[in-house]
């Protein structure tokens, strides 16, 4: 309840002028809202050299003891894309992210290219901005100091890092909360602090692991719209894990559906819905058609993982 009220006021206060959709606008029928707010730089956010992937994985497998988490995974992400990943739980989505963040080495025999250069996973340490499934804020650091953690590790002086973070607070709906500690924040706000920490760590590739998974439905919808705005302003390449098909379609340029464990890409679905995406796009026939295709694919895999589990 608290959280909801909070988010409402913030969104409301920010309004359309801030380059984001205010809550009032979101609740109104969509006509006459979106077009005026499209930032001029939107066109440049489109991948310019679509032929050259930013990151490319081939034959990537990962085995934990006897558990085969990933098998012969192939993924290729172009610069500026927002690619969403869905799949049954336990299919290796987080494992894929750990590999891309440089935290796990895939089994030998893989191909991993970062900006066209052949690499091992650990080369990616410090090169990818990674937001794990949980916010993982440090309880002894306030909002601003949690947000600058990655910058501090890079060696940026605290004063300067704080200045950068302060400037970003309003965009993340955290203005005035810089001195609060994580235990004083609602779940939605904690998640935004974690997102801000990820955005401040400016890297070509951003990995978001179910960032909105723990939020209530209303907050989540607002965060999705907000994320699209922020993404368009900051022009980042994003890989986004979710278990929510609507979210995957609403946000993504492409949706990757993964198979049950061992995880592979089962289906790669382009989402040709126009951007900026309006709130009511979820009821359009194109959206529904996409959703149907994806749900069928996911259903099939979920059934498999159920049978594997012996149900």
């Amino acid at each position: 309840m608290m959280e909801r009220a909070m988010a409402l006021t913030e969104e409301h206060l920010r309004g359309p002028a801030a380059g984001a959709m205010g809550l009032i606008d979101l609740l109104k029928p969509s006509k006459g809202r979106a077009v005026a707010q499209v930032p001029a730089k939107l066109e440049t956010a489109e991948p310019t050299d679509a032929g050259k992937p930013l990151i490319e994985l081939r034959n990537v497998s990962k085995t934990f003891g006897t558990v085969k988490a990933l098998q012969d995974l192939e993924v290729s992400i172009r610069p500026g894309e927002l690619v969403t990943v869905v799949g049954p739980s336990g299919c290796g989505k987080s494992t894929l992210f750990n590999i891309l963040a440089g935290l796990e080495e895939p089994d030998p025999g893989n191909v991993l290219r970062h900006k066209g250069i052949s690499s091992v996973a650990s080369d990616l340490l410090g090169k990818v901005s990674f937001m794990p499934q949980r916010d993982l804020l440090l309880p002894w650091r306030n909002v601003i100091d949690n947000a600058i953690l990655a910058l501090e590790i890079e060696g940026m002086p605290r004063g300067e890092a704080r200045k950068q973070a302060m400037a970003m607070l309003p965009e993340f709906g955290l203005a005035g909360f810089e001195a609060q500690y994580p235990n004083q924040l609602s779940g939605g706000m904690r998640q935004r602090v974690a997102l801000m920490r990820t955005f401040l760590f400016k890297r070509d590739l951003m990995l978001l692991d179910e960032p909105f998974g723990a939020l209530d439905a209303l907050t989540r919808t607002m965060m999705q719209r907000w994320l699209l705005d922020v993404w368009q302003n900051h022009k980042r390449t994003v890989l986004f894990i979710t278990h929510d098909v609507d979210e995957a379609i609403f946000l993504g340029d492409r949706v990757l559906v993964m198979t049950a464990r061992p995880g592979r890409v089962k289906l790669e679905q382009a989402v040709d819905l126009p951007r900026p995406r309006k709130a009511d796009i979820v009821t359009s026939p194109e959206f529904i058609a996409l959703k149907k295709t994806l749900l069928e694919a996911i259903e099939e895999e979920s059934m498999k993982s159920f049978q594997v589990a012996g149900y």
């Binding site: 440089g102 935290l103 340490l125 990818v128 794990p132 949980r134 990655a150 890079e154 760590f201």
Partner: peptide, 11 residues
């Protein structure tokens, strides 16, 4: 996971 996060920042 907290340690992994810091390592992903290159710590």
């Amino acid at each position: 996971r907290q340690v992994q996060l810091m390592r992903s920042f290159g710590a």
